[in-house]
Amino acid sequence: MGLSSRLFLLSADDELHALAGTAFMRMLRREDVARVPQFAGQRVRQASVVVEVVDGTPSRMVHWTFSVLDFDTDGLLDVERLNTQQLARMDAQFEPSRPAADTGGTFVDAASRFVARGGSWAPDERLLRRIEAAALRQVSCPKVRIVR
């Protein structure tokens, strides 16, 4: 048994596009060879899935996250915005409410929560099942075209 990760980008019409992990790493490094013209100038939903693999066959999803990626007009990933959103998502999980100094009530700093919310999304049950089928390789989907 082992684990494997799968990445997908979803077009505006909910079509799944498989994204190779190596291509995503190039996108994160903002390499000029990692442009994605088909998503240029768009906010695109990403599904990141970890699957359990038994005897070389993906058997089930064990973890999944859903992010929103921003691409500039040249098709390059806005890594700075992604990093800000991901850090805000982590902060939101670990930041406790603290008493307000002057009111005695509870103070919640919601700024990072709004940033985090802008960088994530949740699929409906039908779309989640389609993502699962693609992650388990029960259905095929086109690959994201990276321009060199």
Score class of each variant (00 low, 15 high):
Arg45Asp: 06
Ala40Met: 09
Asp74Gln: 04
Ala135Thr: 04
Met61Thr: 14
Ser120Tyr: 00
Gln85Cys: 07
Val68Asn: 05
Asp91Tyr: 08
Ala18Asn: 03
Arg81Ala: 05
Phe66Ile: 01
Thr73Ala: 15
Thr73Gln: 14
Trp121Ser: 04
Phe107Glu: 10
Arg35Glu: 04
Val44Asn: 04
Asp14Ala: 02
Ala40His: 03
Met1Gly: 12
Arg29Val: 13
Val115Arg: 08
Met27Gly: 02
Arg129Thr: 12
Glu80Phe: 02
Val36Met: 00
Gly75Asp: 05
Met1Thr: 09
Val33Pro: 01
Arg130Thr: 02
Arg43Gln: 10
Ala135Arg: 06
Ser120Gln: 10
Leu10Met: 07
Val147Lys: 04
Gly2Ala: 12
Glu125Gln: 07
Gln38Leu: 10
Gln93Leu: 14
Gly119Trp: 08
Leu16Glu: 13
Pro37His: 04
Gly2Leu: 11
Val44Pro: 00
Pro123Ile: 04
Pro37Asp: 08
Thr103Gly: 05
Trp64Gln: 13
Val139Asn: 11
Ile131Gly: 13
Ala133Gln: 11
Thr57Leu: 15
Leu76Glu: 03
Gln46Ser: 13
Val50Arg: 10
Arg117Asn: 06
Asp74Phe: 06
Arg98His: 11
Ala134Gly: 01
Leu136Phe: 02
Leu3Asn: 12
Met27His: 02
Pro37Thr: 07
Val147Gly: 00
Ala134Cys: 04
Cys141Trp: 04
Met1Trp: 05
Val108Asn: 15
Arg26Gly: 13
Gly41Trp: 14
Trp121Arg: 03
Arg89Gly: 14
Ala100Met: 12
Arg130Leu: 02
Thr106Asp: 13
Ile131Cys: 05
Leu76Ala: 15
Val68Trp: 00
Pro142Val: 06
Gly118Tyr: 03
Glu31Ile: 01
Arg145Ala: 14
Phe66Pro: 00
Arg43His: 14
Ala110Asn: 08
Arg30Leu: 02
Ser67Pro: 00
Phe71Asn: 10
Thr22Lys: 04
Ala135Gln: 07
Asp91Ile: 09
Ala133Phe: 08
Asp102Ala: 14
Ser140Ile: 08
Arg26His: 09
Gln86Met: 13
Val115Lys: 06
Arg145His: 09
Asp109Ala: 15
Ala34Lys: 02
Pro37Gln: 04
Ala12Arg: 13
Ser120Asp: 03
Met61Phe: 02
Gln42Gly: 01
Gly119Lys: 09
Val33Arg: 12
Ala134His: 01
Ala40Asn: 07
Ala18Cys: 07
Arg126Thr: 06
Asn83Arg: 04
Cys141Gln: 10
Arg29Tyr: 13
Pro96Asp: 12
Val44Ser: 05
Ala47Glu: 02
Ala92Leu: 04
Val108Leu: 15
Ala100Ile: 03
Phe8Tyr: 15
Ala23Cys: 09
Glu15Pro: 00
Ser4Val: 02
Ser11Met: 01
Glu15Leu: 05
Phe8Asn: 00
Gln85Pro: 00
Phe39Arg: 05
Asp124Phe: 01
Arg129Leu: 12
Ala133Met: 06
Asp70Ser: 10
Phe39Leu: 09
Arg126Cys: 00
Ala18Val: 07
Pro142Gln: 10
Ala92Val: 05
Asn83Ser: 12
Phe71Thr: 05
Gly41Ala: 11
Glu132Cys: 07
Met25Thr: 11
Ala23Leu: 08
Arg81Cys: 06
Ser5Lys: 14
Ala110Val: 14
Phe114Leu: 14
Leu136Gly: 01
Asp32Pro: 08
Ser112Tyr: 15
Gly75Tyr: 06
Met61Ser: 08
Ser120Leu: 03
Asp102Glu: 09
Glu95Met: 10
